[in-house]
Write a protein that binds this DNA or RNA. Structure first.
Lengths: 334, 334
DNA sequence: CTGAAAGCGCTTACAG
DNA sequence: CTGAAAGCGCTTACAG
């Protein structure tokens, strides 16, 4: 498989490589119109497509950014990807999407791969263990923006939900419907650290603000496999909760599975709100009230932040945090 | 942001670029152990990471394949991506995922981008309009494998579901439960061409094989927005269907929305089977019987086919078709 | 208005 | 066992 090179075009058009290159880069100022046309025709005839590797090597920019998501199977991730992609495309950047699959080893591989491929910057859902790697890259002046999480030790710009607010909105929704015994369940593993901590904090604060009693038994962070059993324990308490906030989409699914299996009635037996909107929220019986993240906006902001870093001298950047505003979608589970 | 180059390492270790390069490429045969150690230490000290652009330019291989999905929001797509990725990682290849977003213009851009970035091959869910581009690439000897669709004019290897079988399994499931008035609805736009045609063909054949009457009114391919109204018309026929096969996950969602809105009871009023397993199938009330594609296997086979093409002289390849076996997941909607 | 030359950061065949 | 040299396919500052 032989590829056409710039020199083939040059020979075919009877000009030098330089001139073809000028043409490719749109520098027509000093080019005779007939030269221009000849080159255009040669490119057409030979079906020439420039080698981006060579160009990038020379120009020291790939016009490409890397995106590492923690888990591509989450709707949140795919929506964020879509949004980043839309914005980058407008700005003339490509994206390379990688799926770390909740696995720090994979994450590290991808970080290195993307860096080796000379991406101009990185947007990532940082998993956990690779904080030093990120800091090292940042110290080299490599543009990075985090999504969904803050890493306090790292001081790197982040875009994430106003998680405390999200929990607060949910609690207040329950309170407005006169629920008093309110529980929250989050994952400890699949849910990345920042959202979990902040959602629990927000929950606690909101409970206090509403002068409700904060019952430790109503407040659980457990591994994915234990969600159902944990919920079961709650429901078997002397005073079981009458409302439960699912810390993310995954928790919600587990709760609904348990609820279904045990023929518990929503909202009569238990009211439910989930953080993260899910495609089946409308389809469930009854439709589930959810707190939606502004994924489209968050993706766009992350892309903007990163492209700004790339364009400016990234050494001089001020890192900052953007908080997406949670929005409640009222349906019939509460 | 200055990056460390191979020459920096060479100087630091007191050897030549060549020797560092030999080290990087694992050719230790003729290398003194102390040279090896010195280089290792220099790489460590300088935090050197090779520039993959330069290497690929020289080696004429990027060890990277491109994956273009028609729509990344489909579960099918993300599962296929995961599977391709797993397999490629094992074989030492990276993947670059792109989302054509059902848009031929985007698709074309991505094809060109990936080709420009010198990916070693391409796995794609071909949308429609870019068949000539694909053929052109293939004629140049560029390895391509299609997913989910066959393009008869192109003779390019494809991996896709045994769609006729999938429809047949569904019809037989209905028949085994004594349903006679069986309908099928597919999308005409979002559903890519091959699956739709083949699923409808399989449906027709199965109806005939089971000596049922093939009612034209029970057989509809419509745009996404018209699914609900089309289904409504069906249900208002003198003899409405008693069972309906949803041509894909998207159709299923639309049908369920309508069914829910109109308080139709599954399976008493209408039995439902969906092609494509969906995350909420278990959660719906009643749980929905679905026909699952072996996504993991299909992704793996596609990756294998492509890597074979890449390794062999791709000019000599025999193109072939792999059909994934559909599997019924019996739940309670039929 | 166009071309010759140098160089981006690697790898590799070959010389010693 | 190691290094000098050429070259991958481009771009760019400069000469003319």
């Amino acid at each position: 498989m032989k590829k056409v090179r710039i020199s083939d075009v040059a020979r075919h058009a009877g000009v030098s490589n330089s001139t073809v290159s000028q043409y490719l880069n749109g520098r027509y100022e000093y080019m005779r119109i007939e030269t221009k046309n000849r080159i255009a025709k040669s490119i057409e005839d030979l079906e020439y497509q420039p080698n981006a590797l060579a160009r990038s090597l020379r120009q020291k920019t790939t016009k490409t950014i890397g995106v590492i998501v923690a888990n591509i199977l989450h709707t949140f991730s795919t929506q964020i990807i879509r949004s980043i992609e839309d914005h980058c495309q407008k700005m003339g950047y490509h994206i390379i999407v990688c799926n770390a699959d909740e696995n720090p080893v994979k994450e590290e591989k991808y970080i290195n791969m993307l860096y080796a491929k000379q991406v101009d910057g990185l947007i990532t859902f940082p998993i956990n263990k690779n904080i030093d790697l990120y800091k090292e890259l940042q110290n080299k002046g490599f543009p990075i923006v985090f999504l969904d999480r803050i890493i306090p030790e790292a001081n790197i710009s982040s875009v994430l939900l106003d998680n405390e607010k999200a929990a607060k909105i949910a609690v207040e929704e329950f309170v407005s419907k006169s629920y008093k015994n309110i529980a929250i369940i989050t994952t400890s593993f699949l849910d990345s650290v920042t959202p979990r901590i902040e959602r629990i904090n927000g929950f606690k604060k909101a409970i206090k603000e509403n002068n409700l009693y904060l019952d430790k038994n109503y407040l659980k962070s457990v591994d994915a496999e234990e969600i159902q059993s944990t919920f079961e324990e709650m429901m078997n308490l002397k005073h079981p909760p009458k409302a439960v906030l699912a810390g993310n989409d995954f928790v919600l699914i587990e709760l609904l599975k348990y609820i279904k299996k045990n023929k518990i009635i929503i909202p009569k037996d238990i009211a439910v709100i989930g953080i993260d909107d899910v495609p089946f929220a409308d389809l469930y019986n009854p439709p589930i009230t959810t707190i939606k993240q502004p994924t489209f906006k968050m993706g766009k902001i992350a892309a903007e932040m990163l492209l700004n870093k790339i364009k400016k001298n990234s050494d001089l950047n001020i890192e900052n945090i953007y908080r997406g505003k949670p929005e409640i979608l009222r349906r019939f589970s509460c």
